[in-house]
């Protein structure tokens, strides 16, 4: 059995705040230069948006991707062990243009994030 079973309530959260709380984050949520989020400014396909999240901070226990305007905020959560770097990539669905977050939660429950606006557009036109 996996070390962490599927956290249903975290995936039902409809705000970054609630999702972080459900994932075990406590205290204030702080934007930090020590968390990075890479993704496109404009999504090529809202159904497949590549994200890379990372943090060099020591003691990070969990790294999660969240899309503020999706029906449910949390997309994926990765539990960090000593054997892997706090550096993960996956691809997520986005219903509309939204701020996207990489959230790193430390052992003490403190949560740090990086944020980026990713645009989902109808497309067309061009030079």
């Amino acid at each position: 059995a996996p070390a962490h079973a599927f956290n249903k309530s975290a995936f039902q959260a409809t705000s970054v705040q609630d999702a972080v709380k459900a994932l075990g984050g406590s205290g204030a949520l702080a934007e930090s230069k020590d968390v990075s989020l890479q993704g496109p400014e404009i999504a090529e396909n809202g159904a497949v948006v590549p994200l890379v999240g990372a943090s060099p901070l020591p003691g990070i226990k969990l790294l999660a991707f969240m899309v503020e305007k999706n029906p449910n905020t949390l997309s994926a959560a990765f539990h960090v062990t000593d054997a892997v770097e706090a550096n993960f990539s996956t691809r997520v669905k986005m219903a509309e243009t939204s701020p996207v977050y990489a959230v790193a939660i430390a052992a003490d429950g403190k949560a740090y994030f990086a944020k980026k606006e990713i645009k989902v557009t109808l497309g067309g036109c061009g030079g």
Binding site: E41, I42, E117, K119, T121, L122, G124, C125, G126, G127
Partner: peptide
């Protein structure tokens, strides 16, 4: 389309 043309950040524009 207007946002693809007039977004103040060029990384969010499409150039048509």
């Amino acid at each position: 389309v207007a946002d693809n043309l007039f977004n103040p950040d060029p990384y969010y524009q499409q150039g048509g």
